[in-house]
Design a protein around this nucleic acid. Structure first.
Lengths: 195, 195
DNA sequence: CAACTATGAATGAATG
DNA sequence: CATTCATTCATAGTTG
């Protein structure tokens, strides 16, 4: 699923935003930003209603209504939902904190509650456990993660790491919970960086 | 050079991150700053190892290790890499027209991609654009959440969407022209904070 | 203390 | 849908 681990990938420099002539004006904003009413409505749809998978028809409908509150296009609505879903999901995946308290049990896999969008989410108007007031982030739960064996950093030194060259390029095809041991053997980089 | 010295006079404060849960206390330092060991390790990964695209799993590993050197969360690691990559790329782009010697070839304008406009090829006009992989695409047609008559929000007709639900003939029939009237009567969500 | 800068954080947009 | 890029906001930390 994720064959890449730590190497170059042809980033195709998709930059096109600069002044190639496409630029509208030096003062106008190219990037849409939701006005407060628009944001409120969008959030209401998503969080309160559990409305997370709008069809294109619904996108148009939403967009049409939101036009009353400022310039907006269909793609903006589309992206908005896409991004919100993606980021909420991302938080569940990587932004969850570990209670660095001690007992680390490998009890993962049961994502109770906050079952948002992974599959077809049909429980609308039922859950809504988010902060409807605003920020969608910091929703990170208090679960525990399965990372208990951390072969990444072998030492707990103060400045130097034992560089065990495992060179596990296991980025490709990790079956389940195979830790990708990033071996980092950096002993330089004194903290006289830039600060 | 395009120094971004143009400051906006009106700070709309649109991106105010209110208390979502992460906020610790008003006044305390709520912005993460890498400790010297953390920074050294991160830089070592990035520069020395050329590690620039950590996967979420790797982010967790890195973060877990860095916790020994101070409070840190996954998202901090995530943002750190994102920012560093972005800013290096930004620098490179800035100095692309650096007067090195005097001979600067400004061949911008058209290299190869001349045809593609800014039209994002999203399937807005049509139906069901996303989900080509067959993941969540059963939302339309059968995926009746509550969008039958779309009483997404109990219409009150006060201030927000005065649109009355004239049609709302049921969302089940996606026979091509099912106009789904989204009654957005959101008058709660006092997220006026965002603005 | 104002102005500046480096950088953490957020998010719209895009690609695959 | 996942990942990544680009841009912008916000602020801690200097610097004069």
């Amino acid at each position: 699923m994720e064959p890449r681990t730590l190497q170059l990938m042809e980033q195709q420099t998709q930059q096109q935003i600069e002044d190639g002539g496409n630029n509208q004006a030096a003062g106008t904003n190219n990037r849409w930003a939701p006005t407060p009413p628009q944001l409120r409505i969008l959030k209401g749809l998503y969080y309160d209603k559990g409305f997370k998978y709008p069809t294109p028809e619904q996108i148009q409908e939403i967009c049409l209504h939101l036009k009353q509150y400022g310039q907006i296009e269909d793609k903006n609505v589309f992206f908005w939902f896409q991004n919100l879903k993606a980021r909420e999901r991302q938080k569940l995946k990587e932004f969850r904190n570990v209670p660095v308290g001690g007992s680390l049990n490998l009890n993962f896999g049961s994502t109770s509650s906050t079952d948002d969008g992974r599959s077809i989410d049909l429980n609308f108007g039922s859950h809504v456990g988010y902060g409807v007031d605003g920020s969608i982030m910091e929703q990170r739960g208090e679960y525990h993660q399965e990372i208990e064996t951390l072969p990444l950093f072998p030492m707990h030194g103060e400045d130097i790491f034992g560089n065990m060259k495992t060179t596990s390029e296991g980025g490709s095809g990790y079956g389940g919970d195979s830790r990708i041991s990033l071996e980092l053997s950096l002993n330089s980089y004194k903290d006289a960086d830039m600060a």
